[in-house]
Design a protein around this nucleic acid. Structure first.
Lengths: 224, 224
DNA sequence: TATTTATGATAGTAATACTATTATTTAAAA
DNA sequence: TTTTAAATAATAGTATTACTATCATAAATA
């Protein structure tokens, strides 16, 4: 039997639930491929429709615009990562070990999760690295936030913050450190591959170095 | 006599040097105001032309497209910050004091520098917070990088990295820590104001807390 | 004074980001 | 099984964006 992982999505992100139809699932699948390949700026609903074999209007029936589609994909990813974290740290007692696991999960290039048919998590991870911050770096972030578009991100930030506090209940900046870990796991990866002189990982381009850097950063802060 | 600060810009960023004419200076001045006010996505050359009282074609004679204009503004800002850092840490011997000064300069909301007539640094600082990462988070980052568009950022990262090494010559991640400081000085500020639950500065919304957080993060790492 | 150079005014194009309409297919309810 | 509703396909159309091109005029320079 297939263990179907279902991520609960905020309904105000879509007009029609893409999980409920083949066309919807195709929109998700191909938008991930296209955004990853062309970049979010060059991605259009017309190109998406062509890739699927439907029409522009068909896509608009599911998503109001490409920004909401991006936020949908990103929310999905955070929900999925949250699930991975819960699952993989479930029976770990030591909060330090737990936090290391979280850092590794956030920094490692993901493999496609076969439990989620139409979503390629490896590509989605790449989208998060290159496009993730565009979800909130907009003029309408306030409105989007009111509509709870960023709840999965905030929830994740809270979970990680809680583990940080388990490590050291007196640490003063659990949320900021948490958002720093999450953002830097992605940004140092982007820099490593595209602007290597902004990192110290230029030669080997190995994500394990990012993990070591983040562990060094995080545990020196927490333990002091 | 006026101490005119001139930031040397990469000529491949523009078609005609905007510093050399009134129209050019107006393009800089009004683009800063418009991008800050409307956000980069909603900013267009047509709106800019209307604000200045020229035509779209007039703007296109100076900048090939709005992305290059954004990169121009951001490069200008990094050049200016570099100058501020050099100037304000000039006679400081202690690298720890120097690094604290750098953190403060990067994190503090800037005042308009009256030595630079057509550039409002306070607004430009806001642009860096909200739009800064869009300069490099594109599909054409490789090409842009080849054309040296990000040199001012890299130079800054190197300078800060050098100070970090002065504090502790054995520290392993000077560049990554440096880019972490620079990015987080802006991102924690954005979060504080727009997604406060991703930070621990929600109530007071005071940038001094960001400075304290970054100092804690940085010096615990360096000194260990 | 002649001539280069920058600007202004105007037009035009291809692509983007949508909205609307109608016909057709598919699936669910009666 | 028929009726009805819902989803999709096909097509068209609009306003805005992101440009390029042309030509006249004003200002600066040789």
């Amino acid at each position: 039997m297939k263990l179907a992982v279902q991520i609960k999505m905020n309904p105000s992100l879509y007009l029609r639930d893409p999980e409920q139809s083949e066309l919807g699932k195709n929109i998700i699948k191909h938008s991930i491929e296209l955004i990853q390949h062309k970049g979010f700026e060059a991605f259009t609903f017309k190109k998406l429709a062509e890739a699927i074999g439907t029409t522009e209007a068909g896509v608009y029936r599911y998503f109001e615009n490409k920004h909401k589609l991006l936020v949908y994909l990103i929310s999905w990813y955070w929900g999925w990562i949250q699930f991975q974290i819960n699952y993989q740290t479930n029976n770990i007692k030591d909060p330090v070990v737990k936090l290391k696991k979280v850092i590794a999960l956030l920094s490692t290039n993901v493999e496609d999760d076969l439990n989620t048919g139409h979503v390629d998590e490896a590509l989605l991870h790449q989208i998060l690295i290159s496009e993730g911050s565009k979800a909130y770096l907009t003029n309408h972030v306030g409105n989007d936030n009111k509509q709870q578009f960023f709840k999965p991100y905030k929830d994740l930030c809270n979970s990680v913050g809680a583990i940080i506090l388990e490590c050291n209940p007196k640490y003063k900046y659990p949320h900021s450190l948490s958002s720093t870990i999450i953002e830097m796991a992605h940004l140092q990866n982007f820099f490593m591959n595209h602007l290597p002189s902004l990192t110290d990982f230029s030669k080997s381009k190995n994500e394990n170095q990012i993990i070591k850097y983040l562990e060094d950063l995080v545990f020196n802060s927490i333990r002091s």
